[in-house]
Design a protein around this nucleic acid. Structure first.
Lengths: 210, 210
DNA sequence: ATAAGTATGTGAGTTTATTCACATTAGTCA
DNA sequence: TGACTAATGTGAATAAACTCACATACTTAT
């Protein structure tokens, strides 16, 4: 599926296009031009065509893109035509809210394990039926339940150690909500979500952009 | 403070540098080289120097950067040497968890208002003492309490309408957790947080990068 | 069947961002 | 005081990303 060196920004945009296209699936239109999609996503139309061109020709000249075909093609490109199993580590406020959050399942991501170190929490059942296990069982359970991606929602001090354990357990993808930079071997891909960094950008714009 | 056209990526990295530097404040070292900081943040040392050079000369040649001075200087650059007031809109799982989350207050962001449309929720008190108001009161309360940034944690269908109301109330900064692209006038700066997009990137890497 | 209209796919040009490499300057030690 | 070391600041080189502009190809209507 991968033909050349693809800009990371392209991959991110493909997700954005797919979100917008999915919204349109229920509507009466079934074809869209790069121009209209670009407006919806806030990007340049040529950008969309270039992004897609890395992977093939998905449009029809003079017509546009058939929405449901394109959704499936982007899914193929991103590797989303299959379920992905998630493990949540850290079931504080944020971790618990994320497990309950409907957006993951909506896009094909399924929580199959949950871990914490707090004895108060271990053994408890989450709203989706998952039982919280102790982090010491992480390696075994991750392998047993075929977890593909680990989500870290622990306090910052524990994030690195959790990451180490995830890597040991054979996990190659981590979504990190802890506000620290975690170090992992090259085989493992980490994405960080830090909303205070986004707030800093907003603060900067409010202070100095006008 | 702003001298030239600054890359957005630079602003984001400054936040990252600051996070790393803050961690070091308690330690015994009080000077750091761009090389060491770069390793901590996973970037190129020259990148750090360039980023800082947009705003002035903060280091000492032959020595490095004094950590606490640099933290303060980055705060000045980003506009963080003052408190910022936040309003949360949408107190479902995620919104409630975010209000309780300690990371905001830690970096100088204070929730001063909370809104929802659910009559079950309006009037309830949050853990930090805030009372949830109805969204219909948004404009008045935002102005009364001097809210600077609105955080949208509503279902996707309501996000645009909430954004419109925030803009009407005079808000120029929005942090959007709803998985839709919201449209606002140029005066308003929007940052999006969409973790399923990050998961898509991970899925792509796990599927095709080796 | 042909012409008109439309929107893709893409090479070339442009802009933006990153990295290199070194001159510069502060500190240290003899 | 002067030579040596270390790490910044920065112009130049490189690399990456984006946008333009148009040739290409599909659809529709006459």
């Amino acid at each position: 599926m991968k033909f050349a060196k693809i800009p990371m920004a392209t991959i991110v945009r493909l997700s954005i296009y797919m979100r917008a296209l999915k919204e349109l699936l229920d509507s009466d239109v079934d074809v869209i031009s790069s121009e209209r999609l670009a407006k919806l996503c806030g990007v340049n139309p040529a950008q969309i065509r270039k992004d897609l061109a890395y992977f093939g020709e998905f449009g029809v000249r003079g017509v546009g893109y058939r929405i449901n075909e394109l959704v499936n093609q982007i899914k193929d490109i991103l590797g989303l035509n299959r379920p992905w199993n998630l493990a949540m580590v850290g079931l504080g406020n944020l971790g618990s809210a994320l497990v309950r959050h409907g957006n993951f399942i909506k896009h094909g991501y399924v929580f199959t394990a949950a871990f914490d170190t707090d004895p108060q929490k271990v053994g408890k059942e989450l709203s989706n039926g998952l039982i919280i296990n102790h982090v010491s069982e992480l390696e075994d359970i991750v392998q047993e339940r075929d977890v593909h991606v680990g989500i870290i929602a622990t306090p910052p001090g524990e994030a690195q150690s959790v990451a180490n354990q995830l890597v040991l357990a054979g996990i190659n993808g981590i979504l990190n909500f802890a506000p620290v930079q975690i170090q992992v071997p090259d085989c493992c891909h980490v994405e960080n979500v830090d909303f205070t960094i986004k707030l800093d950008s907003i603060a900067y714009h409010l202070s100095f952009e006008d």
